[in-house]
């Protein structure tokens, strides 16, 4: 099946290649194959496929990745607006269909 692509040019993903130590962890954790390792450094090759889950940032041992991560969920964003909090799907609370 072909990859589903969401909106182009919106994601906040940033990779500081000069900081990258080429460990390849981002490649291992990314669910959409956004990164590639070449010349001892990671590179972003499929930016628009990034869903901002934040796994790469969290698992980067040298903090070379920045992404404004969160749930890509409309109900979660509405929840956040209504409760004046960060967007959050109420998965662990009662009543939720998010994720």
């Amino acid at each position: 099946m072909k990859d589903l692509l969401y909106l182009p040019d919106v994601v906040t993903l940033k990779l500081y290649e000069e900081t990258c130590n080429g460990c390849g962890m981002c490649i291992k954790v990314c669910p959409h194959d956004v990164f590639e390792l070449s010349g001892g450094k990671a590179h972003i090759i499929r930016r628009d496929y990034c869903m901002e889950c934040g796994a790469c940032q969290l698992n980067c041992p040298v903090n070379a990745i920045m992404v404004n991560s969160g749930v890509g969920c409309a109900a979660g964003i509405i929840n956040g607006i209504l409760n004046n909090t960060e967007p959050s799907c109420g998965c662990s609370d009662s009543n939720s269909n998010c994720c």
């Binding site: 990859d3 909106l7 994601v11 959409h32 496929y49 990034c50 869903m51 901002e52 991560s69 964003i77």
Partner: peptide
């Protein structure tokens, strides 16, 4: 499984 917070 593929929408980002910024996109939504």
């Amino acid at each position: 499984t593929y929408t980002s917070l910024s996109g939504v």
